[in-house]
């Protein structure tokens, strides 16, 4: 019990202040910015799950988009069949994704590097298409997710996207705070030890297999929450909401942030939200042909990813942060 309190006590004030700042900010910006804020919050949570997994425990997953799909579908199904309220659907999403991740983690713990990457890639390609084939998952049309209206006490002109931003923003802040505390705890240290040198970590008494499974489970749980939040901003869940490119996008965000650097994940999330906007204005300048506007975001993401891997392999923030960690 004492240990749990120690885990949770790090720097809650910063997060509460950040939350207040964003809430005040959200009152003064328009619908689009609120929606982008909500999207950034979703990416933030997803990137945090990769930072935990790849940056700390050293495992790589190209299939976190599929795990987000598990979370998203769990949220929608628990609302549809058991009439859970919003908070409980989030809990269902986290639990379902974590259980899925634990099962996967048992296989993943024995794999490394490219084997794990290929296996999770297979998952990302195949899992969302499964939903097409089972009737209760709604097929290609997907299933609707009912988000309760914002409470009347917030005023009549309190818009829906504003409300989305509040929900996703608070969930993201809470999750980042939790993640930071987990990463700062003994588990975070064990993962880093294991990533740097598995043999030495095992000699020091760390059960490498268990540690890996734990990391995969927690990371999947976080990704599940990201999936549920994404479903919330879209108001429905469809297989096409979780394409292979989503998995790539999250990995890109994590790499841009410098994998292994939770603070950088905010940069990653903001960049991921900025890319479509940037490419939209660029596409309009280039004439606005459909093939340009459809492919430019992917092109920019890929170029950023390759440049980062070549020139800032530890992330743009790494040099400065290195001293403190």
């Amino acid at each position: 019990m004492h240990k749990a309190i120690v885990i949770l006590r790090k720097r809650p004030t910063i997060f509460i202040l950040a939350g207040l700042f964003f809430y005040l900010l959200s009152d003064h910006v328009d619908e689009l910015r609120n929606f982008q804020g909500a999207t950034a919050a979703v990416y933030l949570v997803a990137i945090a799950s990769i930072v935990l997994l790849t940056g700390y425990s050293g495992q790589i997953s190209l299939g976190h988009g599929a795990i987000m799909a598990v979370g998203g579908y769990a949220a929608v199904l628990s609302q549809k069949y058991w009439h859970f309220n919003l908070l409980l659907t989030f809990v269902a999403a986290v639990l379902a994704a974590a259980i899925f991740g634990a099962i996967l983690g048992f296989a993943a713990a024995r794999l490394s590097g490219p084997y794990l990457a290929g296996t999770t890639l297979a998952l990302a390609v195949g899992l969302p298409s499964l939903a097409d084939q089972f009737h209760f998952l709604g097929g290609e049309q997907g299933l609707a997710y009912n988000v309760p209206q914002p409470p009347m006490s917030l005023g009549a002109d309190f818009t829906q996207y504003h409300w989305f931003f509040w929900i996703t923003g608070s969930a993201a802040l809470l999750m980042i705070w939790l993640t930071q505390n987990i990463l700062g705890s003994r588990y975070g240290r064990q993962w880093r030890a294991m990533r740097s040198n598995p043999t030495a970590a095992a000699l020091a008494g760390i059960h490498v297999g268990c540690s890996k499974v734990l990391a995969f489970t927690l990371s999947s749980g976080i990704a599940g929450l990201a999936g549920a939040l994404m479903v919330l901003t879209l108001n429905l869940v469809t297989p096409s909401a979780f394409p292979l490119s989503l998995s790539f996008t999250i990995v890109t965000g994590a790499v841009l942030a410098g994998v292994g650097n939770l603070r950088g994940s905010i940069i990653g999330a903001v960049v991921l939200v900025a890319i479509p906007e940037l490419s939209d204005s660029l596409a309009t300048k280039l004439g606005g042909a459909e093939r340009v506007s459809a492919n430019l975001p992917g092109l920019i993401t890929a170029v950023l990813l390759i440049l980062t891997v070549l020139f800032f392999p530890e992330g743009p923030l790494r040099k400065r942060v290195k001293k403190t960690t």
Partner: peptide
């Protein structure tokens, strides 16, 4: 991150080529 990097680089290349 030496062992993760080639995976991510080829992935980036996949995205680059397909877009």
């Amino acid at each position: 991150s030496a062992n993760v990097r080639p995976v991510i680089a080829t992935l980036g290349l996949l995205g680059l080529i397909s877009s």
